[in-house]
């Protein structure tokens, strides 16, 4: 039981950060990036290929995160342009359609060219005992990196002027423009950051379980669940939602079996929408 909860927390931290990357883009411009998981996988595969060709782990990981950021930036300056010219429902729908297309392209390319590639960063060392449960070093390192990234992001959004500018566009775009903020450049920043987060999560995830080329869509769906439960556009909400869903996930695979876990997660998300339509924290955090 304790072991399952600890495993759930490790997983949940990653779910949380994964959700953050998607939710900031949604909160920002009212667009959903369904190529998000595919971009994460593309980053992971870049790391894997780079390491196989002899690059040491740290620069390979940096290259992977850069790949995520670059892909996302590219998306923002190309197919997102017509999306931002639309408003409201049209904007969301168009973003969904176009990014699903991109997801298929990335996914199709990877499955075609590198069908059996998978990133698996095994971190050596003896297990460390936490609350009497032996935890693998990989899990602990992944969690530490994720916590650092999460705290870093929250500090960025709370403390820095750029972070405040981002939140201002999320809360009231007209108000932000009137304050001299250019929403287009803020969106560019957020999209790039989102891609870097996708890359980072793919890397930390591969420290506990392999990330194969086929993982894209399930990562996107996970990120969507976290976003919905956490409240659209809320960083704190996404982190908390990730932890909750991670623990739910671990407990349900522990007690019920992993085949039904996805359904349990969906039910948990559906319940949140019914009970708190704007998510755990609402929209303004």
């Amino acid at each position: 039981m304790t072991a399952a909860i600890l495993d759930g927390l490790v997983l949940g931290l990653q779910f949380g950060l994964l959700g953050v990357g998607l939710t900031i883009v949604y909160g920002m411009g009212g667009v959903l990036n369904l190529a998000y998981g595919a971009m994460a996988v593309a980053s992971a595969i870049v790391v894997s290929v780079a390491m196989r060709s002899g690059l040491p782990a740290v620069p390979a990981v940096a290259l992977g995160i850069l790949t995520g950021a670059a892909l996302s930036l590219l998306l923002n300056v190309t197919i997102m342009r017509p999306v931002y010219r639309r408003r409201g429902d049209q904007r969301v729908l168009l973003s969904i359609l176009l990014t699903i297309g991109v997801a298929f392209i990335i996914n199709g390319y990877l499955v075609w060219k590198l069908p059996i590639e998978a990133l698996s960063l095994s971190i050596g060392g003896d297990a460390i005992s936490i609350l009497g449960v032996p935890m693998r070093v990989g899990s602990l390192l992944a969690s530490a990196i994720t916590i650092l990234a999460g705290v870093g992001l929250i500090l960025f959004f709370r403390r820095t002027t750029a972070g405040k500018a981002v939140r201002s566009v999320i809360q009231d775009e007209v108000g932000a423009r009137l304050c001299g903020i250019n929403p287009a450049s803020v969106r560019m920043l957020i999209f790039t950051l989102s891609g870097a987060i996708a890359g980072l999560v793919a890397v930390t995830r591969s420290m506990t379980s392999p990330v194969p080329v086929s993982e894209g869509f399930s990562l996107t769906i996970l990120a969507l669940l976290v976003t919905v439960v956490g409240g659209l556009g809320s960083v704190k909400g996404a982190m908390l939602a990730g932890l909750i869903l991670g623990v739910v996930n671990a407990l349900s695979s522990f007690y019920i079996g992993s085949y039904i876990t996805t359904i349990v997660l969906l039910v948990a998300a559906a319940l949140t929408i019914l009970l708190r339509p704007s998510g755990l924290f609402g929209e303004y955090t």
């Binding site: 405040k164 939140r167 201002s168 809360q171 009231d172 007209v174 108000g175 932000a176 423009r177 009137l178 304050c179 001299g180 903020i181 250019n182 929403p183 929209e283 303004y284 955090t285």
Partner: peptide
């Protein structure tokens, strides 16, 4: 663009205010 006009030194307070409610 609105943001350029703002940076040029014109500050507009609309009737709807457009504050940042969560801040």
């Amino acid at each position: 663009p609105v943001y350029q006009i703002s940076r040029a030194g014109i500050a507009f307070v609309p009737a709807e205010r457009h504050l940042f409610p969560g801040m």
